[in-house]
Design a protein around this nucleic acid. Sequence first.
DNA 1: TTGAAAGCGCTAACAA
DNA 2: TTGTTAGCGCTTTCAA
Lengths: 346, 346
Amino acid sequence: MKSSVTLKDVAKKAGVGVGTASRVLNNEANVSQDKIERVLKVVNELDYKPNTLARNLRKQSTRTIGVIIQNVSNPFYSSILRGLQVEMVGKDYSFILSDLHSQEDSIQESIDTLVDKRVDALVFLGSCIDEKKLKQISKNKVPAVAISTAILTENFDIYKDFCSITIDNKKASYEAVNYLLKLGHTKIGFISGVEDDQNTTIPRTIGFKKALIDAKVSINENWIMNAGCSYKSGYEAMKQFLDSNIEALPTAIFCICDLTAMGATKALVEKGLSVPKDISIMGFDGIENAFYHNPSITTVEQPRYEMGQIGMQLLFNMLNKTPIVNHHMILDYKVIIGNSTAKRQR
Amino acid sequence: MKSSVTLKDVAKKAGVGVGTASRVLNNEANVSQDKIERVLKVVNELDYKPNTLARNLRKQSTRTIGVIIQNVSNPFYSSILRGLQVEMVGKDYSFILSDLHSQEDSIQESIDTLVDKRVDALVFLGSCIDEKKLKQISKNKVPAVAISTAILTENFDIYKDFCSITIDNKKASYEAVNYLLKLGHTKIGFISGVEDDQNTTIPRTIGFKKALIDAKVSINENWIMNAGCSYKSGYEAMKQFLDSNIEALPTAIFCICDLTAMGATKALVEKGLSVPKDISIMGFDGIENAFYHNPSITTVEQPRYEMGQIGMQLLFNMLNKTPIVNHHMILDYKVIIGNSTAKRQR
DNA sequence: TTGAAAGCGCTAACAA
DNA sequence: TTGTTAGCGCTTTCAA
């Protein structure tokens, strides 16, 4: 048996009621000093460890937070996770991690499992939640925060125990492309994410196109390619581009995320082309890898660490019924200029 | 109340005993077809969801596995995590993640928390466990597997519910350095990990030194630097090297891990030096980043994905009391030749 | 094959 | 301030 000393044993040996013993262990008021000491002494002697399972059942809570993450291997998400963790230190909560591994369709199963496991709260990192899922978590009274996650609903406000944190993806990609335009590029391609990805592909494509339209630069649909957010997908998408003659290539390519941008860069270097001389490459997210890459990647930095911290604060506020001023936060991003972009040369 | 339909409600409405209802839900034999159907029908009507917390208490198990990970942001560990996940699909277990964030001293607290939470098993990724910790998990009857983790004990064999998976770190770093020697380098430096890190620094330093000694090449202690496993620590360690005159620099540097190697490369590129022309850089781990880096990093690949898969298989064997042939596996590594190393030129 | 009932170990309401 | 007791919702033993 796992340390089969129970509270009853402790109470008996200390000569107190089991209620009193429980009170001592939970630091409740209204217990005499004498009994506190007696109980604590016995706890020590018997090496008593409360049974969390019994406590969970009684309290219908687990002090556990479910995290549904798009892909742990993507530093963008693991940085947010880090932010969450840091804010959780000393709070006696734990994370149950459910990694979607970029498999968007498994999110429903993840939610079901975590709700079944009676997590006290839910965090979404990436992916997409719709009205149905919102209703499900609301019905089950699970407070939730969605970070960098697409939310498909017209009415946030119905859901009082739901918060979100994101940046304005349309505007951010608009600005990214604008930066390329300012460098004189007019032949601009886009290595995009998974088709129909509501969180990244859709809004960033809108921003991309709007920037070109506003600048009266023509959009070449052949230069817009669906790929994904990983080294590999960027690498392979760029290889497809390179099947064309160099003259037919864009002079700058905006990528859905930094990993994609770095993968694309590799394909260019392999072909003996230079970034940014032959082609400028721009990423998105602002992960550490991009900074250390050679060339360092020009990108749009999302405040990912902060996203995690704020997310966890909001979650604790919901858990503690502390009023929340702003349920839906849109944070600032920042264009970071690296060495992967340069003035148009062709 | 959260879906306050209980098994009792279901049993009553179906006109059966609560025991029978329970048997139906657990697919046990010896229940008449008639009752099975009646119960299932009511379950559907009432949208009954079993309360996991009650089940956990009753069974003294949680179908949850605690993972203590050195650093989720390090792709080496998150790849192992991926291997674990893949092997767990469909098994109805979940992960509680405890990230040490490279803070070696917080491991004891992590173990305590997870044991308190009554995880069914424990996985260690990185860091180091000693006799005391081994005794603790053994006493609590928590099966555990340690992957790429230092184990400080003379007697593995006492612990029947404990497995480990690793590579031979000494031999691997010996071979790595040998590769540099074969390229003609005799001035070889080492950007190492955190001092006294039993898992990486200690064994790899031994291998490093032995390779030089065996080749009768002198060891320059000034060229051995403690850093850590991250972009930043590699970058900064290399900047320290670069304070010296180029003539005083080694012609090749072995790094404790790929992140460190890439960080080091950045510092060189910033100084206008070329990798591998001016200095060859070699990493360790074989993560994806290293392959996509420019130049791609010559490294020692650990079978990290496989480590995770095998680890999870061993864990399930322990959980199911399936006999295990080999409790302590030492897997093969592979030297991967990239573009960050070249023949000695100075 | 089935139902009743006894816990799992804890917290919280109640009574003293 | 304290002890007693009634559950939390489930599984499993026992007797029928």
